[in-house]
Design a protein around this nucleic acid. Structure first.
Lengths: 106, 106
DNA sequence: ACCGTACTACGACAATCGTCGAACTACGAT
DNA sequence: ATCGTAGTTCGACGATTGTCGTAGTACGGT
């Protein structure tokens, strides 16, 4: 598919800010995405394969916010985009953050 | 001062939800408040004693959100209200969450 | 070349949010 | 009783946000 104007930019590890990460995680849909990506693991998953109570365009919106915050990595594969959690980066920057959130009820 | 209509309600430990906590922490002013309360410790501090780039009423607003999310405890003392971090509750519910956020840069 | 799949881009919309000022209440001190 | 201090309440405002539908783009397969 195409990135069109925005070239699938990811922040480097050192560019990730706790504020943006918290903001990205402070939405129920995005939290659901993160939980799902954590469950699936390193393989990642296509955006559309996660079942969510929102439309395609809203999905894209949430995935962009997660990507720009440095929470997920997105790489194009064929016509799909595979998303993965940036576990290593997040664990290195904010050790315990992701674990505590993923361990929380719901 | 007075609680007027809202009687300074706090969620019990079991009522605290990760989503509300993340939402509460996902604001620069509120994060600043939490950092300051963590620095001060168990003694707590009056709302007005924390210097913030916002007016009194905005302070009240942010403190209410933090309180209702279960992040802080507020008790009236004289004409003031002393706020403290609910460290024990948060650490018990989401071990590592607060530590990782407080350890993060900024 | 065409079609289907997968996703992005672009408005548009309602809802929420952070902010403020002005008015109010509560408490302590004089 | 009066006054000052500390904080809350109540609109109001602009900005941001989450949502959608429609249209568009990219890629793989036939």
């Amino acid at each position: 598919m195409g990135d069109m104007t925005e070239t699938l930019t990811h922040p480097t590890r050192s560019e990730i800010r706790i504020e943006s990460v918290l903001h990205a995680l402070a939405d129920p849909v995005r939290l659901q995405i993160v939980r799902e990506l954590a469950r699936i693991g390193c393989d990642g998953v296509a955006c559309g394969a996660i079942d969510l109570p929102v439309t395609k365009s809203t999905r894209t919106h949430h995935l962009r916010i997660l990507r720009q915050a440095g929470v997920i990595n997105v790489r194009p594969v064929g016509t799909s985009r595979i998303s993965t959690l940036r576990r290593d980066d997040l664990d290195a920057l904010f050790p315990g953050l992701l674990d505590s959130i993923l361990a929380a009820p719901q």
